[in-house]
Design a protein around this nucleic acid. Structure first.
Lengths: 241, 241
DNA sequence: CGTACGGTTGAATTGGTTCAATCGGGGTGG
DNA sequence: CCACCCCGATTGAACCAATTCAACCGTACG
């Protein structure tokens, strides 16, 4: 059953890379243990020095930081194939936390093994590098979203981004996908209050652009939604360029 | 004269890494040409496929994106030692632009040479990886700054971050450093208008926390400034951890 | 000497927050 | 089986932080 769950990982890392059979073998082999994490439990916490690298196989997780006043900012949504804490192969301590937003299945990998893989398998190293650069590009897009878009365009942009990512993972059915986030969590990612997220969702629904119901997000008019969001998917490097 | 300017590059990449004489040699050798860029000229532009990797040797640059409505968001300040466009070793096209904020000196490196270096010199690859992970951590800090701090704490936090980075590059004199940014540019980085940045700077000055005059930023009370900013420098990984 | 750019300040406006009340569904214990 | 409760969604009203628009200043520069 682990094999089935590993598909997102393989899919992610062969993206745009010519991985050999050896590389594939390594990706399987590096995931020594499978583990489940309950919803709303932390996978790793800021200040921790985790002994393993956790890789999402199934479910949603989020990176976040809490401020002295207790407010919280989510800095990334983690989907199947994403590393929760790849940086501990370089740094000892986590500078942020990762929480399970749904019941989560993760693979555990040894940092030392990963380091050796990166050192000895150039194609794989390049694939990891590619993934890290996409993560960075997504962060830049979030900075732009938070810094320069109003709440309306901001929510729309997040919807477009998640739609594109889910599509890339083949987790879409038509223009719908499972979005297991409360309005509060959405607000924590978008720098808005849950109340305001609610009002914006209502507006987007009333205008026939998108709809979030029963944890399902439907893009009713993907074209117009992308326009109001100013969405340009190039930064996800989902194509060939 | 190139040798003198290369110091920031060497300094940056031996940070926390055990680089051999060979690695040092490579860092020098990879920078084939030195070039200058006038203030407010773009080093690379969104959509470009630059033939070289540009590395800042002297001066300030910024990554930025422009939105359809013409507004601009800066996503990073680049200081000596920083790569302007390292990602083109993996992706063909830039997903954002880089502009010179001061007269700028850059080194040009060949992407192919860099790729070979990363492949063949594990210690150097690790050093690059470290630098990329710090960049990512800084981006997360910016997301938190934009998403969850009011203008006052936000300006203070940016000041603390730049102070720490300049300190790490040994570009401080006492608690002062050269900050060659207009209030407009600061606003573009902080998701604020130039007018509001001005008001906040006045408040911080009146309260004796910091002072920006003649392109010089002075931390008048670094301790209190860090407190109002909620600044925790761990994410810069400037220490040993 | 004039012009352009960056900084400074005031007044009106507005997008988003805060506070508060209500509603609905799913799970639990009696 | 039903009553209760809790969590998340929804809506209204008052409030506030930041923007917008506008005027004015100083100074570097052609």
């Amino acid at each position: 059953m682990l094999e089935g769950l590993m598909n997102p990982l393989i899919a992610k890392f062969q993206m745009g890379a010519m991985l050999s059979a050896d590389d594939h073998q390594s990706l399987y082999a590096v995931c020594e243990i499978k583990q489940t994490v309950n919803r709303s439990m932390d996978v790793v916490r800021e200040g921790d020095s985790p002994a393993h690298v956790y890789i999402v196989l199934d479910g949603w997780a989020a990176r976040y930081k809490v401020l002295p006043d207790g407010s919280r900012q989510i800095t990334a949504f983690l989907l199947p194939g994403d590393f929760c804490n790849g940086e501990i192969t370089v740094f000892k301590k986590m500078d942020h936390s990762v929480v399970a937003l749904t019941p989560l299945t993760v693979a555990l990998a040894s940092p030392d093994t990963l380091i050796a893989m990166i050192r000895d398998q150039p194609e794989l190293a390049q694939a990891f590098r590619r993934a890290a650069l996409v993560d960075e590009a997504v962060l830049r897009a979030w900075v732009v979203n938070l810094g320069r878009r109003d709440a309306y365009a901001r929510v729309a942009h997040q919807a477009c981004e998640l739609h594109a990512r889910m599509s890339h993972l083949s987790l879409l059915k038509k223009d719908e996908f499972d979005l297991p986030l409360t309005q509060e969590q959405l607000g924590d990612a978008l720098g808005l209050t849950a109340v305001h997220v609610n009002r914006i969702l209502k507006r987007l629904r009333d205008e026939g652009l998108m709809q979030l119901q029963n944890r399902t997000l439907t893009l009713l008019d993907a074209k117009r939604l992308g326009e109001v969001a100013g969405f340009n998917p190039d930064y996800l490097h989902t194509g060939t360029a």
